[in-house]
Simulated assay, not measured.
Amino acid sequence: MNDSAPRPSRWRVHARRHPSAFLLAAQLLSLLLYPLLDGTGGRVVFAGFSALVVVLAVWVVNRSPAIGWIAWAMAVPAFVLSLLSVATGINGLLVWSSLLEALLYFYAAGSLIAYMLSDHRVTSDELFAAGATFTLLAWGFAYLYLVCQFWYPGSFTGAVEPGRPRSWLELLFFSVTNLSAAGLGDILPLGAPARVLTILEQFCGVGYVAVVVSRLIGLWLLRAGRH
């Protein structure tokens, strides 16, 4: 008997096996395209990329043991508020959108960490998940810094034009250098809320490397030794 059922495409097979890779690629692609975007049109395009990253984050959460509806409850309002903030130019909407996106990214990061710690095998998707978790944590704290700067003006200063508020890219740069312990020092937290957030991110960065990354490396070396 001939089986005429269509076979899934290669992209769908890879998407099923490596959902974390698509999330990581979307994060990095939006980062690479950001310097090319300027003005209102650029903000709209970047909002679209951010929405894609949010949807992929929800997708990764749905494929992990976490409850998907919680992620959607944060993703949909964040997406709507992001579009309204671009259309109306109201900063208050952007702040609440940023807060929801931060919560969503932390939720997705926690779900990926639970996924990586759920067994004693190391798969290629778990290696992609390690990179995706780092980007989710960095993006999440960057959105929190944006909210902190809006609620507490003067929370951050920089080597260039120290008196003005820091841009989104500057806060993301600060978040990545802080999470990775690079600490370049050209952007500094001034107020108590900003410094508390910075301390929490440093703690998360050290804990992530000590617990999750070191465990994956150890299991990978153990697997390589057996082979």
Rank of each mutant, 00 (worst) to 15 (best):
G89K: 04
G89M: 01
L24D: 05
L190A: 04
G140K: 01
E101I: 05
F106H: 09
L117S: 11
I67T: 10
F203G: 14
S85T: 01
L222K: 15
I90K: 06
V53R: 05
S124T: 13
I217S: 11
L99E: 14
R195N: 04
V60F: 10
L94Q: 08
V211D: 12
A224D: 13
R164H: 08
E161T: 14
A87F: 00
N178L: 11
L117D: 15
T123G: 11
G39P: 00
A102E: 03
W69P: 03
G154Y: 08
S155Y: 12
F134P: 03
L99P: 05
R63D: 02
V86A: 00
G225W: 11
W139P: 02
Y152S: 10
I217K: 05
R16W: 13
A78S: 13
Q27G: 12
D38H: 10
V196A: 15
V80Y: 01
R223G: 12
L112M: 11
A71D: 02
S155A: 14
V86I: 05
L29N: 09
H14Q: 15
W11E: 15
L144P: 05
F134E: 05
W69I: 13
P165H: 01
W168C: 02
G183L: 08
M1C: 15
N62D: 09
E201T: 10
G41Q: 04
W69T: 08
V53L: 12
L52F: 01
N91Q: 14
Y152I: 12
V60L: 12
R226F: 07
Y152W: 12
S167C: 06
V13W: 08
H227W: 15
R10D: 15
A75P: 01
N2W: 07
W72A: 13
G218H: 09
A192H: 12
M116P: 04
S167A: 08
A71Q: 02
L52C: 03
L24E: 06
G191L: 13
N2I: 14
W59C: 01
G225R: 15
R63P: 04
Q202K: 07
T133S: 05
C148F: 02
R164Q: 07
A75D: 00
A15C: 11
G42P: 02
L100W: 09
L222W: 15
L136R: 04
V61C: 04
V211Q: 06
G41S: 08
M116D: 10
Y143Q: 03
F150Y: 02
T157E: 15
G140Y: 02
N178C: 05
S20P: 05
G131Y: 00
W96E: 14
D186R: 04
F79E: 04
N2S: 14
Y107W: 10
G68R: 02
C204A: 15
T198L: 12
L37H: 03
W69D: 06
V212L: 13
F173V: 09
A78C: 08
N178V: 06
M74S: 00
R7C: 07
N2E: 08
